[in-house]
Design a protein around this nucleic acid. Sequence first.
DNA 1: ATAGGGTTAG
Length: 634
Amino acid sequence: MLSNKLFPDAHVLPSIIKACAGLLAVNIGKQVHGFSLTSGLSLDPFVESSLIHFYVKCDEIIAAHKLFDNMAERDVVSWSALAAGYARKGEVANAKKVFDQVQYLGFEPNSVSWNGMIAGFNQSGCVLDAVLMFQQMHLQGFKSDGTSISSVLPAIGDLGYLSTGSQVHGYVMKMGFYVDKCIVSALIDMYGKCQCPLDMTRVFEETGQVDIGACNALIAGLSRHGLVDEALKVFRELHGRERELNVVSWTSIIACCSQHGKDIEALELFREMQATALMHGKAAHCFSLKRDITSDVYVGSALIDMYANCGKIQLARSFFDRMPIRNLVCWNVMLGAYAMHGNAKEAIEIFLWMQRSGQKADAVSFTSLLSACSQSGLTEEGRYYFESMTKDHGVEARLEHYACIVSLLGRAGKLEEAYSMIKNMPFEPDSCVWGALLSSCRLHHNMRLGEVAAGKLFELEPENPGNYILLSNIYASKGKFKEVDRVRDIMRDKGLRKNPGCSWIELKNKVHMLLAGDKSLPQMSQVLDKLDKLSMEMKKAGYMPNTDYVLQDVEEQEKEHILCGHSEKLAVVFGLLNTSQGSPLRVTKNLRICGDCHAVIKFISRFEKREIFVRDTNRYHHFKDGDCSCGDYW
DNA sequence: ATAGGGTTAG
């Protein structure tokens, strides 16, 4: 238009601004705002309210409010947009104040006003306020329409309000809303979240139609209940009918597999998706190229997570720094990344930055923050944030937070304090909390509390071999071999075996799996030779094998263990033999790294001049020049 | 003519 020397007027501008809001094109939108100011078109009420909405969508509530304050006349639309904006930000008090003001000034809130509030509260996770808004709407005599219903259902699901959900379901039937695809999907989602997989399936079957949204909701719901095979079946049926699978279908099923340990299936589905997507041709390809997809909040968050999981924490951070927009997930992923690497100082730095940016922290943020403090021994900082969480941030402590704080105190040797923390918890401690205490008792050789924790764990999860092993380790470290045997007997009677240790290493695009005492590896004799040579060098350097950890491997497998060593050691040496001098090694282990292996790998990193990354179930260990990033605090 | 609200995944 401009290059044709045509001047935009007050009719076309709102559409342009709406498009900017839809694309979250912040900079272009601001340019259009500038244009409307210089041209005088900003005085038009339509232009003004579309601009308010634009700023609300781009999460710039302050800019939206400033605009609102300068308006000549304010109508229902502008009031509602502002109220919804505060709801989106999770500023509940402000949202309600502005919303009440609409009625106080004599305006009638319409369905868009109500629905905007419900949707806004939903987006900021204020799900209880979303449901209350819905109920208030009814109390004031407003009938909910399809939009209100599909907005409120996910909130009801998050809260697990099954009876409210069923009431809404009844209302849906009465009003004939079953034809609305969004509502059907939302109902399936709600029953899934309310632990009712049967009602979920019933709704899906009752509606008869195979809508893609409903299928996707069903797949997600089945996945939530661990019904992976059923989810795959629904997906395959959908796929087989040559129906249009959308990106949500693929994402749901891939997530379902990767969240339930089917990593290979997840990767295969991903490949299959790419092959299918190729058929959609150039249009999709051009779209993803033109749009810098790595800066999308979701893609970006996943990339940060992936690089952090692969040990490339600096790369993860540089992606994070370049994100144009960051949402809660994005911040939490970065916090979690630092927690996994035990970088508590950086985690705290990110947390403070998050506060300055106006992003509210949630329960997940604090889990990472506390876990980071616990990993690094920042005991006082961890205590401070645990208190501040409820007091200053309004986040109620959950089980996982107690598990973190117990582990924080326990690692620091404050076992009695950790125990009294458990005793004073406002709810029943679960296996994670007791497990944190037991691990700490193992670390500090505390038999008395170790027995208490183990006793609880044997009730809570009698089939988990890890707890028996930990208790027997405590006994072994105290020389109480009778008790060691007693625990071993219990394990044998229950038919439990120690989970086999297993490590992975990726070499030349192939993942190699190594088991403790594995003989199937073709290069095993070379690996053992190398290990022998390294042991000799280590002894020359004054290294003493840690018998504390050898004691955990009594019984038949003992000989193999001593001969072949633990899987992480094998994987590291296997990596040494198959990579060029000086290149880094990355190993993943299915259990926590063993203390003896930890010492050996420290030595190897210096002697062989290699950077070695080992990820265990708990965190990353980054070995370099004979030291580990964990500072031996673990 | 022009502005404001919805489901499923990460």
